[in-house]
Design a protein around this nucleic acid. Structure first.
Length: 864
DNA sequence: TCTGCGTGCGCG
DNA sequence: AAAGCGCGCACGCAGA
């Protein structure tokens, strides 16, 4: 038996054991089916099922827990705000827990084949089957979906799911129009604890079993169905599993709601904001962008020759494609590999020589004994010939093989060789980048410094810029469109509450086409299930499409509204400093910052004049642009606020300021004067640190927490070590000197703790501000969704940290519409200082036209 | 061949 | 002997 045979046999045994275990679990699941679990497989049973759902809703109206819970869903500021605008979100009247079973997990393509619901007061669960591929009797799809279509579309009937965006997307694929999907027990758990190792329903139930009061089997989906679609499995088994899921979902939902109410301001975070976002997020994901493919192709065709030209320029200047250049580069870069090869080669040669000696000995022996006809003799002769034929190059650098075939502009090591070895440019990495351990950097900002002395290197800047544009966007996007021909994205929530946006994998677009009918449904399901895992790359990150370069702008301009529409977009102006101003005013009594915003002043300009001790007139951006000053004072001041907010060191700020033409002394004085002018700022930051030390978490203005699970442990240990070294606090000027009193090990630990606690402190303060900014935009998005998307049918394709975008049918783009959009941005949330925004009309993304420049009568930009 | 990681760079 | 927050993706390399 070979090793592979042994492994294969082992795998067979494991698989066999797993099958046996699965069979036992399946048998147990079927054997222990609770009496209140009902599986519906006949259209005739559907009316009775629907009546039970109705009965549950009736009972909930008189139940204390439910009426109290409905109040949580109903009494929100945003709901009142919308009511003022004449938009009604119906009051919650019921809460039931649902789940769908599907052909797969492609959110644009797969279909449901069954759904389950738990009715808490009736204490019974249902599974309705219609898409199983087992040949068993089941409901017809149209009847099964029809039974719940109305209920699903009622915003007053709150539906809870675990990972609701998935189920909502699936139901949309099935032609339902769900509303009132306003509880997600996965999102609820995130609000309760952002540090769960996993948010799967089953693991959560297992982990919090005692607190939740959960019973029942712990089986996971995989335990019963391996990795197959449930549609391939018997209805009875899937049904029991699916009902357990909604029962567990109910237990989790109830426990989460009770815990949200009992814990800090978590009910605010969930009910004011999160409850509305499932529908909003799914709507944005499904809307996507129309891409002007012709334009994108034209842009690619235009940039590709430019990229080649830039490469050709570098090749012409330095001969980086010459064999001799490549050889030298290879010897340098791969010196270690080559040494290794030489050692191995020497061994190979020695081994060969040894083998030859052995064969020769054997030949001599046979000849001496006259046994030249023996097989042993002929074998030895043949083997010797083989060994002699082996051409083994000498084990030196000269003869080592080439590890690099050609020069690559995308390989940092190659650029590093060209710049530092071939050209011998002095390494200035440490003067430019902040990482002190870094050397021989080939990043954009370091290379820029080198272009000054080595002009022929300058095309490298274009090479990397064009490569990024072509590789990440221009060439990728046309192949990343989804079934509807649009470009979509996957939105997720990150630690501060902002969205992240990314590409995703899906099933091939041609897997399903045309309308799904009862006649073709099961055949379609079969195709979807057989198609297996999703594997085609689709979509893209919509939050990092270039904007700052001319070519980048042109990529954005291939993102267009659907025919007959234009974009209406708006970004909140300086939302983070305004939130800081709000906090300083309302919590710490420092009104200076907020007052500037109230007076309509540009604080950056005002603070710039004071901090840099220059004429106020020179601090406007336009003064810099007009050349009245060579120093961008406003930009520098803005950087300082950012620096302070993120906790940047003085040294770093001074470094960038000096690069922009400020004297070192002036930069230092400006940095120091920040605290004199805005004393509330440091108070605010320190209060945040104090809160972190006491609780291990910080929260946004809307109570959304971020926890730092390691912080308090690290901080306590750090305090202990500091005490031993006689260090007063982290700001002790003799910190470094005193750290030498510690043993080497303790000193290492000390500096590590300084780094870790410092990082958490900065992130914790940042969370309060950045996270609050995310809350503000989400509230704007919620209002937009109800007022514009549901209310007026305007598509909602984009959210981007502090901005959002809708597509408006051109006939509906009135001055009132623009004013409304601005109102949504600035008056959905009220702070101690006004909010401002920049609202623009965009025939294409990035082609920005202010309302004043738009001819509303003729529905086009005013003539220039 | 796949996966994880470091580096670098796109965005707010 | 530290000192800028939040992301995702392309690329090359190294190890499995």
């Amino acid at each position: 038996m070979t090793k592979a045979d042994v492994i294969a046999a082992g795998e067979r045994l494991t698989a066999e054991r797993k099958r046996a275990e699965r069979a036992e679990r399946i048998a147990e699941t079927l054997r222990t089916k609770p009496a209140n679990f009902h599986i519906v497989t006949d259209d005739a049973e559907l009316p009775a099922f629907v009546e039970r759902v109705r009965e549950e809703c009736r009972l909930q109206k008189d139940d204390v827990w439910f009426t109290r819970t409905f109040a949580l869903f109903n009494n929100t500021l945003i709901k009142r705000k919308l009511a003022e605008r004449g938009i009604t979100i119906p009051d919650a009247q019921s809460l039931t827990v649902w789940d769908t079973e599907t052909s797969g997990v492609d959110k644009m393509i797969d279909l449901t084949g069954g759904y389950s619901v738990w009715l808490p007061l009736l204490d019974e669960g249902y599974y309705v089957a219609y898409g199983h591929l087992t040949g068993e009797k089941q409901c017809t799809r149209s009847a099964a979906l029809g039974a719940i279509a109305k209920f699903m579309s009622l915003a007053s009937q709150i539906k809870s799911f675990h990972n609701a965006p998935f189920d909502l997307a699936m139901m949309l694929n099935d032609g339902l129009s769900p509303q009132g999907i306003r509880f997600d027990s996965l999102e609820g758990m995130r609000t309760l604890n952002d540090n769960e190792p996993t948010y799967g329903l089953k693991p959560l139930i297992t982990k919090y079993k005692t607190a939740i009061g959960a019973t029942g089997p712990d089986f996971t989906f995989e335990d019963l169905f391996a990795k197959e679609s449930p549609m391939l499995h018997p209805i009875e088994l899937v049904g029991i599993y699916a009902i357990w899921d909604v029962l567990k979902g109910w237990w989790l939902t109830k426990w989460e709601i009770d815990t949200l109410v009992a814990t800090d301001k978590l009910a605010t975070a969930y009910f004011e904001i999160a409850q509305y976002l499932t529908e909003v997020n799914v709507n944005i994901e499904r809307t996507g962008f129309v891409i002007d493919l012709d334009e994108l192709k034209a842009l690619g065709d235009e940039l590709r020759p430019k990229l080649e030209q830039a490469q050709a320029d570098v090749i012409a200047a330095y001969g980086v494609t010459d064999p001799e250049f490549i050889r030298k580069m290879d010897r340098t870069i791969n010196a270690a590999k080559i040494t290794e090869w030489c050692e191995k080669q020497a061994k190979r040669i020695a081994k060969n020589a040894e083998a030859r000696t052995k064969q020769r000995a054997s030949i001599t022996e046979c000849e001496a004994a006259g046994k030249t006809t023996l097989k042993k003799y002929t074998n030895a002769v043949a083997r010797l010939a083989e060994l002699e034929a082996e051409e083994l190059a000498p084990p030196d650098v000269e003869h080592a093989p080439l590890f690099i075939e050609s020069f690559s502009f995308t390989t940092d090591n190659h650029l590093r060789y060209l710049i530092y070895d071939h050209l011998g440019i002095t390494d200035r990495t440490k003067q430019i980048v902040k990482d002190k351990n870094k050397s021989r950097a080939v990043s954009k900002e370091v290379l820029e410094r080198y272009y000054e002395e080595e002009e022929a290197l300058a095309p490298l800047a274009n090479v990397s810029a064009y490569e990024k544009l072509l590789g990440t966007y221009i060439d990728k996007i046309p192949n990343a469109l989804d079934v509807d021909g649009r470009l979509h994205t996957q939105l997720d929530t990150v630690s501060t509450g902002r969205y992240s946006s990314k590409g995703y994998k899906g099933k091939p677009n041609d897997i399903r086409s045309g309308e799904v009918t009862d006649a073709n449904y099961l055949a379609t399901m079969r195709k979807l299930v057989d198609c297996g895992e999703k594997s085609v790359p689709k979509g893209t990150n919509l939050q990092n499409i270039p904007a700052r370069s001319k070519e980048g702008e042109r990529v954005r301009m291939t993102f267009v509204p659907p025919p007959g529409s234009v974009f209406l977009g708006s970004d909140l102006s300086s939302i983070e400093p305004r939130l800081q101003a709000h906090k300083m005013a309302t919590v710490f009594g420092d009104e200076i910052f907020a007052e500037m915003y109230r007076k309509g002043l540009d604080p950056y300009v005002e603070f710039a004049a004071t901090m840099f001790e220059v004429d106020r007139e020179l601090c406007f951006e336009k003064a810099y642009k007009a050349g009245l000053t060579s120093i961008p004072f406003r930009k520098l001041t803005k950087d300082m606020f950012l620096a302070k907010g993120y906790g940047q060191a003085q040294e770093q700020f001074v470094k960038t300021a000096v690069k922009r033409g400020v004297t070192e002394d002036q930069a230092k004085r400006a940095y120091a004067s920040f605290d004199e002018i805005l004393p509330g700022f440091t108070t605010m930051v320190n209060a945040s640190f104090a809160h972190l030390r006491e609780h291990g978490w910080t929260a946004t203005l809307w109570g959304q927490k971020r926890r730092f699970p390691e912080y308090r442990k690290n901080w306590r240990r750090l305090c202990e070590i500091m005490k031993r070294a006689g260090i007063r606090d982290k700001n002790d000027p003799d910190l470094s000197k005193k750290s030498y009193k510690l043993s080497p090990d303790l000193r290492t630990e000390f500096w590590q703790l300084i780094r870790l606690t410092g990082r958490d402190e900065r992130a914790a303060f940042n969370h309060e501000i950045q996270g609050s900014g995310a809350n503000v935009l989400k509230l704007c998005m919620i209002r937009s969704y109800y007022e514009l998307t549901l209310g007026r049918g305007w598509e909602f394709p984009l959210t981007l940290h502090d901005e959002q975008k809708h597509a408006v049918p051109i006939a509906e783009l009135t001055e009132e519409a623009v004013a409304l959009y601005t109102d949504i941005m600035t008056n959905t949330v009220t702070l101690a200082c006004p909010l401002e925004c920049d609202t623009v009309i965009e025939p294409k993304w990035m082609q920005e036209i202010r309302a004043a420049e738009w001819d509303f009568t003729n529905r086009r930009p005013k003539a220039a």
